[in-house]
Design a protein around this nucleic acid. Structure first.
Length: 116
DNA sequence: CGAGTGACCGCAA
DNA sequence: ATTGCGGCCACTC
């Protein structure tokens, strides 16, 4: 089912924004993902920055706090600051270092197994 | 429609 | 290990 959804949006008939929403909705609660990965999965490999912009506006019901940068670092401009994002992550059982980086990023990082 | 923008990314000092 | 910088390109106004 997940596969179906992602496959559809990688066919890119949807806008990037739509694709980002769908992918974020698929993101498991105990995982994180990156702007770049989302961009790639959405079929716009160079649009990482755009994903950030979309996240900035995105609907509150999606868990944007689990979206981090390529090094596992928390968002620079997260509303309320990185401290807030970190707390939200910890509520999901995702720990961070003092440096505002997701702990065990390699393990936490979400990878869709299929994805062409 | 065109120019400016940005919750990025990777490589060079 | 840090910092800086330029490229990136869909989105907004």
């Amino acid at each position: 089912m997940k596969w179906r959804l992602e496959l559809d949006n990688s066919q890119a008939n949807l806008g990037l924004r739509e694709s980002v929403y769908l992918l974020m909705a698929e993101l498991p609660a105990d995982k994180v993902t990156t702007y770049g990965d989302i961009a790639v999965m959405a079929g716009h490999p160079r649009a990482a920055r755009i994903v950030g912009g979309i996240a900035h506006q995105g609907p509150d019901e999606l868990s944007w706090h689990r979206l981090v940068n390529a090094r596992g670092g928390l968002a620079i401009g997260y509303p309320g600051g990185q401290g807030v994002q970190r707390q939200l992550l910890e509520l999901d059982g995702i720990e961070c270092t003092d440096e505002y980086t997701v702990k065990d990023f390699g393990e936490r990082r979400w990878r869709p197994n299929h994805h062409l």
